[in-house]
Design a protein around this nucleic acid. Structure first.
Lengths: 203, 203
DNA sequence: AAAATTACTAAACAGTGTTTAATTTTACAA
DNA sequence: TTGTAAAATTAAACACTGTTTAGTAATTTT
């Protein structure tokens, strides 16, 4: 290992340490209360050092945002083995719902918060992780259409609609907008609504 | 008019001035960039004065949040004249979509942002405006069920589902998560998805 | 060992929401 | 009208925030 290689490794370790501290604080304290000073304290470095490894605060959270998509996509791909595309579609929905319910803060960072998109914009980069996830869902819906398993042939409309449907319920739930439903198990209702949607779509 | 009455009037005018300045800055600059100092400057008073009329920053935005619900509910109620509940349901959807597309920042404040809910929580108040809107939508869906116009009889599930559906698409659109759809008119697709949903629900 | 490069940090800058204490303005009674 | 009490307003400070700069310390290269 050359010195250059070791240095690159150390640089990487430091980046990981910063990301780890940031994610930990984000999950326990939330985005606003996660400060550069707080992250620096966690890893026992000065706040200024962070800026040698990340452009700014949003850059750190864009990285966490992208990695959360990697995690979600990995989970979604466990449904690849399901032959029937409409069954696979329902499985994808269940995996998506479970991910959101188990990681509400990360879900918020992925699909609601403005910060990571703003960071992409200033960097003039594209939202590849979002593109990938959309295409993945659309391809399964496309298979359903090809095999004439659903009552529609507009893949984009169905993908926008299905994704929007699940996201809406999850988003309202996570943001405490379903609080009037005291006698309803909202998490179970979201799963039920997915089944209801799939049933309605079936040819 | 007694002095007490005039004072109450002046107090009210000041509150309105603060709210007006806050709303203006919020709509043009966003929540984060709307500062107490900025609001104070707009109305030519010192920042400390604001705190004689509002508990804190979130209290100001909770008031704007509640008033936005008043506006939305007033718009929704223009559909009261539509006799057929399933037609009325579609109209409610259209009104809801149009409101969100025309007032994305306010929509965000009403259905996504954490600040107003946190303010309610610390005040130990209930989210009445949300309750009202939910009940209003549910009552129309209830009429559809009573008249056997739709293929389901679970009013809560349908209300959660339908509201979630529209909210999801609007939320993803507003938060720039549909940016991969360059060749799709997303706003038109949201309206189309509503019609599609209503068609699927019909008995 | 000296020079050059890299890594790190103390301190400062400009901003934030909020509180306190002092001041000005207004209201009321003598 | 004047003195006093009450209310309204504010300057200044507090404890934060993200970020930058300039200088120090450590490391690598010559």
């Amino acid at each position: 290992m050359t010195i250059k290689e070791r240095k690159a490794l150390e640089k990487n370790e430091m980046r990981e340490a910063i990301l780890g501290a940031a994610k930990k604080l984000f999950l326990t304290e939330g985005y606003e209360k996660t400060s550069i000073r707080g992250i620096a304290e966690q890893i026992a470095y000065s706040p200024a050092t962070i800026y040698q490894y990340f452009e700014d605060k949003d850059d750190i959270f864009l990285t966490i945002h992208i990695r959360a998509f990697d995690d979600l996509l990995l989970l979604l791909k466990t449904a690849d083995s399901v032959e029937n595309p409409i069954e696979r579609l329902e499985d994808l929905g269940k995996i998506y719902i479970t991910f959101a319910l188990e990681n509400p803060e990360l879900y918020d960072l992925m699909f609601c918060m403005h910060a990571p998109m703003a960071s992409l914009h200033t960097k003039k980069k594209e939202w590849n992780c979002g593109f990938e996830t959309y295409d993945y869902l659309k391809s399964t819906i496309g298979e359903c259409i090809e095999q004439k398993l659903i009552r529609s042939n507009n893949a984009d409309l169905l993908t926008i609609s299905a994704w929007g449907h699940l996201h809406g319920m999850l988003s309202l739930h996570i943001h405490e907008r379903y609080q009037m439903l005291e006698n309803v198990d909202i998490e179970q209702t979201i799963y039920a609504s997915l089944s209801h949607l799939i049933d309605m779509l079936k040819a």
